[in-house]
Design a protein around this nucleic acid. Structure first.
Lengths: 238, 238
DNA sequence: ACGCGTTCGTGACGGCGATCACACCGCGAA
DNA sequence: TTCGCGGTGTGATCGCCGTCACGAACGCGT
C-alpha cells in the first residue's frame, strides 16, 4: 500500500505495537472498540503542522510514524524547541484536557502518520471510562515531569556548554554501549540544536569544535559518536 | 482555638471555602464524605518543609492558610523558585499520581495550615471515583500550563529586566486598578526574587533602582506600587 | 558542469551581567 | 548602648556569549 509523500501506510497503526506501557493499551474490550471508532488515521508530509501554538484544541494526535518537533516562539521570532516526539507519543493532550489553546506548535520533521482523536469524542470517552481518565492523569503527570526537567535545564544550568552536554547525554542514554561510547544519527541542524538549548547557531558550532578537540565526541558523516560519557556528566554538574 | 506558632486554627478548613473552582469541591456526597475520612489537618511553622525534592511521595497537601514556596536546586546550591503557593493550592499532586519523587521542595514562608491526604488513600479514592480522576487530570493539565509558562519565561526572555517586568506584571494583575496602577505587599527578599527570575541578588537590586528611576514603580514602606503597566508590558515583549 | 540555497566554521567586537568587595541600614538580643 | 546579622545599595572588574560579517562546504535540481 502506497501513500502520498513516499511513505508506506501502516495498515493497522496500533500504538500498542509501539509501546507496551502506552496510555491506550490493555484497555477493556469495550473501551478499545470505542477508541477504534472515534480515531482516524492520516498521513503527513515533512513540514506539516499538526497544530499551531494558540489554536483552539481540535483533538489529540497519536504519532505512529515519523518525528515531530514541538516548539514555542515569542513575538519577536525567537523560538525554542521543547521536545522531539517520535512514534507512540501523544500530542496535544494537555490542551484538550484543559480546554486551553495548544501551548506548542507541532511540526513533522519527516513524513509520518498519526491517529487523530477529536476533542469532544475523547472527553466523552473519558467521562464514560473513568479508569482511563486515571491513566490520562498519569500520562499528564509524566508530561509535567519532563516539563520540569526542562525548567531545571533552562533555569539552573546557565552556560551553553552545560546544556549542550546535557542534551548529548540524553541522546546517548538511548544507545549506550558498555565502554561508555554511543552512536546517534544526527538529524538536527545546528540551528535546531541552538533552539533546543536556548543559544545561537554560532555558539553551537563552536561547542562542536570545542567538544571534538576535548575528545568528547566525534563526527562520522552524519552519525555522532559520543566518546566519553563520564566527562560529559562532569560538565553537566560542574 | 489557639495553635502553636501563634496561629489560629481554622476550625473547618474546607478548601471549597477558599476556591469555588477547586478540585475537591462539588463532589458527590459519598465522595466528599470519603475525602473527609482520609484527610488530616496539621499546622506548620514558618520554615517548615512539607516535602523535599527527591523524596518518595507520601501524599498531597492542600494548603489552607499561609504561603509556601516551591523550589528546585542543583547540586552546587543554585536554587530556583518556581512558584509561590497560597491558600487552596494542592501540593505534591504530580508526584503522587505518577509515583515519582517530589520534583520540588515545599517550604512554608509563614505559619500555616494544610490538609494532608496520604498517597495510597488518594489513589484508591481516585480508583473508586472515576469522575474525580478526570478532574485531577484537568488540574494536572493546568499545572502543566503554568510550568510551560515558566519555560517560556526562562527560555524566550533572556534579559533579567524582561523577566523582572514579567514578574511585576503577574503580581499586578491580581490587584489592578483602573488607572493602570496597583499595590502589592512585598513579602519577598531581593534574594528570593533573584531565585524566581534566575539572576543574582545584586542585579535585582539594580533593577529596582532602574525601574524606580524610570517611574515604573515606587516603594512605600513594604508595599510596592506599580505605576505604569503599559510600560512594563512594552519591556516584556521588547 | 553550473548556479543557488542552506548549512556550517570562524574571526572581531562589544555589552551585559556574574562576581567580588565593601559600606550602610534596621532590628532584635545581650 | 553595642553587638551581630540579615537584608540592601553600588562601584569595579572581567569573561562569556550574542551579534555581525564573511567565506567555505555541501546538497540539489536543471
Amino acid at each position: 500500500m502506497r501513500a502520498p509523500y513516499g511513505l508506506n501506510i501502516l495498515d493497522n497503526c496500533l500504538t500498542c505495537a509501539v509501546r507496551e506501557e502506552h496510555l491506550f493499551c490493555n484497555l477493556s474490550v469495550a473501551a478499545g472498540q470505542r477508541l477504534n471508532e472515534i480515531k482516524s488515521t492520516a498521513v503527513y508530509p515533512k513540514g506539516a503542522m499538526l497544530f499551531i501554538e494558540g489554536q483552539q484544541p481540535r483533538g489529540v494526535f497519536v504519532l505512529c510514524a515519523g518525528k515531530a518537533k514541538l516548539s514555542t516562539s515569542s513575538r519577536e521570532g525567537k523560538t525554542i524547541i521543547t521536545k522531539i516526539s517520535d512514534s507512540g507519543d501523544i500530542l496535544g493532550l494537555n490542551a484538550v484536557i484543559s480546554s486551553r489553546p495548544y501551548e506548542v506548535t507541532a511540526e513533522m520533521m519527516e513524513p509520518g502518520q498519526a491517529n487523530f482523536i477529536p476533542r469532544e469524542s475523547l472527553l466523552q470517552f473519558l467521562r464514560d471510562h473513568g479508569e482511563v481518565a486515571l491513566r490520562v492523569a498519569e500520562q499528564l503527570s509524566r508530561n509535567y515531569y519532563t516539563a520540569y526537567e526542562e525548567i531545571r535545564t533552562l533555569g539552573l544550568s546557565t552556560s551553553p556548554s552545560e546544556k549542550f552536554a546535557k542534551l548529548l547525554l540524553s541522546w546517548s542514554t538511548k544507545t549506550a554501549q558498555t565502554d561508555g561510547t554511543s552512536q546517534v544519527k544526527l538529524t538536527l541542524t545546528h540551528e535546531e540544536i541552538a533552539e533546543i538549548i536556548g543559544t545561537t547557531r554560532e555558539t553551537v558550532s563552536r561547542l562542536f569544535s570545542e567538544f571534538k578537540k576535548k575528545q568528547l565526541l566525534q563526527l562520522k558523516g552524519s552519525t555522532l559518536v559520543i566518546r566519553n560519557r563520564v566527562a560529559l556528566e562532569k560538565i553537566v554538574q560542574s
